[in-house]
């Protein structure tokens, strides 16, 4: 093993200088200047200034749900009378998909007078529910069964394939 060379006076002086600044930190004014620069940049670019906050995320889901319900309700109410035939709330034998709730489950449980309504809806309705839609078929209709209350509000939907 090769012995390390003995430290010279210069080495000792450099070590002393290194030790003299070992705990040095920028002054508080610099910390404040950086914080101010960050704040200014955040104000200039509020959309990208930070990831979405927790409150934003919690707000996004109810808004999306409300939009879906509104779209479905509008579609059901605007269908021609012959397209909506009220039936007892008994699932169709040909239906293969599960009902997807579009309102909180508790609301469905409270809605004792719900009924299943067959309807042909635009495929774009799937997109409103966050399901993938082939753009080439977006204009086509798809068979569905809607679980609706007497007032016409949609509680759940399932797609018949």
């Amino acid at each position: 093993m090769v012995p390390l060379p003995a430290p010279t006076d210069l080495d000792r002086s450099l070590a002393a200088l290194r030790a003299s600044v070992a705990d040095a930190l920028p002054p508080t004014a610099t910390d404040q200047a950086i914080a101010a620069a960050v704040a200014r940049a955040a104000r200039r670019n509020p959309q990208a200034a930070g990831r979405r906050t927790a409150s934003d995320r919690w707000l996004a889901w109810p808004l999306a749900l409300a939009a879906s319900i509104a779209v479905l309700s509008f579609v059901v109410r605007s269908l021609p009378p012959e397209a909506v035939v009220a039936e007892p709330a008994v699932p169709s034998a040909s239906a293969t998909a599960e009902f997807m709730p579009v309102v909180p489950i508790a609301d469905i449980e409270r809605a004792g007078d719900a009924m299943v309504v067959p309807a042909r809806l635009p495929r774009m309705t799937l997109a409103q529910l966050g399901l993938p839609v082939n753009p080439a078929l977006a204009a086509d209709a798809i068979d569905t069964e809607l679980l609706v209350r007497r007032d016409g509000s949609v509680l759940a939907v399932r797609f018949i394939y």
Binding site: I34, V38, A42, N45, Q47, A48, A49, G50, R51
Partner: peptide, 12 residues
Amino acid sequence: ACGDVAALTPLY
């Protein structure tokens, strides 16, 4: 770089 300027603080 993507605009999340608050990420500068821990880097600083």
